[in-house]
């Protein structure tokens, strides 16, 4: 079997995956997407692989490569549909809500005026997020109308059509942490809690992690969420709502796991590599 692992920065996660593929005796080639030109009529290089694992840190690169490769019938992990659903918070939210998976209440609007109305329908405090973005970038907790108007004005000044979308989500008064469940091949494999003194509990923003028990409730909601986005390997971020229980906040299609291996005792890259190998071998769809 031959596997291609695409990337734009080779981080610890990618090194660990390469190691696990090698332990499985699988020939794996790391391909830097920044150096690629895709000719849809000549994809012989790519057809030489049984499966392609996308690990680009750049969403743009992931989408470009996966679109071209899937159009040529090349199996990608994760699939394009997963990328499209997970990379856009609005797409994630409507897909999950439509499937009956619990999510925080949200409103979406496209102008400063309707955005303010959306915010006030949710009520303060409210969380404003770019629909596309990660690592907590430009996420704002807004406590009153003055702050809402200021954020909307700043968004407008940024100028891009994407920033004109106002995605307003109810603020969940979480207990100083959020939860993450790693799901591989439909099976929840590990769970962590992320703690921070800041309301944004993101490891990219300095949160610390702790392994937690994969309870029945966590397994159920995480597996359901992963099924909605058809993810091969995804990380489900959950909030603990005091009133409504677990809510799916976001789903990550290019999950980072370096800080979650030791605290959970689960070899996450090994399980991802084994799943990819089974899909590549045709044992799984």
């Amino acid at each position: 079997m031959r596997i291609a692992m695409t990337y734009t920065r080779l981080r610890t996660e990618e090194r660990l995956l390469l190691d696990e593929f090698e332990k499985l005796g699988i020939e794996v080639e790391a391909v830097d997407l920044r150096q690629q030109v895709f000719d849809p009529e000549d994809l012989d290089f790519w057809h030489g692989f049984d499966i392609v694992v996308d690990r680009a840190v750049s969403l743009t690169n992931s989408l470009v490569a996966t679109r071209v490769l899937e159009s040529a019938g090349i199996r990608c992990v994760n699939p394009l549909s997963t990328l499209e659903l997970c990379s856009d918070k609005l797409a994630t939210s409507v897909a999950l809500a439509g499937a009956g998976v619990a999510v925080p209440r949200f409103r979406v609007a496209t102008t400063p005026e309707s955005g303010l109305e959306a915010i006030e329908q949710i009520g303060y405090p409210v969380v404003l997020k770019p629909t596309v973005g990660s690592w907590g970038r430009l996420v704002a907790r807004v406590n009153d109308r003055d702050a809402a108007e200021a954020v909307l004005e700043h968004r407008g000044t940024l100028g891009s059509p994407q920033h004109s979308v106002v995605y307003a989500q109810e603020h969940i008064d979480k207990p100083g942490r959020d939860l993450r469940v790693f799901v591989v091949g439909g099976a929840p494999i590990a769970a962590i809690a992320r703690y921070s003194g800041h309301w944004v509990t993101n490891t990219a923003r300095g949160a610390t992690t702790e392994g937690i028990e994969l309870t029945h409730e966590l397994r159920e909601i995480a597996a359901s969420a992963a099924e909605v986005v058809c993810g091969d390997a995804v990380a489900i971020d959950l909030l603990e709502c005091p009133k409504r229980g677990l809510l799916v906040n976001e789903i990550n299609h290019s999950m980072e796991f370096r800080n979650s291996i030791a605290v959970t005792g689960v070899n996450i890259p090994m399980l991802v590599a084994e799943h990819v190998a089974r899909v590549g071998a045709g044992e799984l769809a």
Binding site: V57, L59, V132, S134, W135, R137, N252, S254, M255, E256
Partner: peptide
């Protein structure tokens, strides 16, 4: 020196 984080980077 590694480039600064870009807007489309993430998980």
């Amino acid at each position: 020196i590694a480039p600064e984080v870009e807007e489309d980077w993430g998980e």
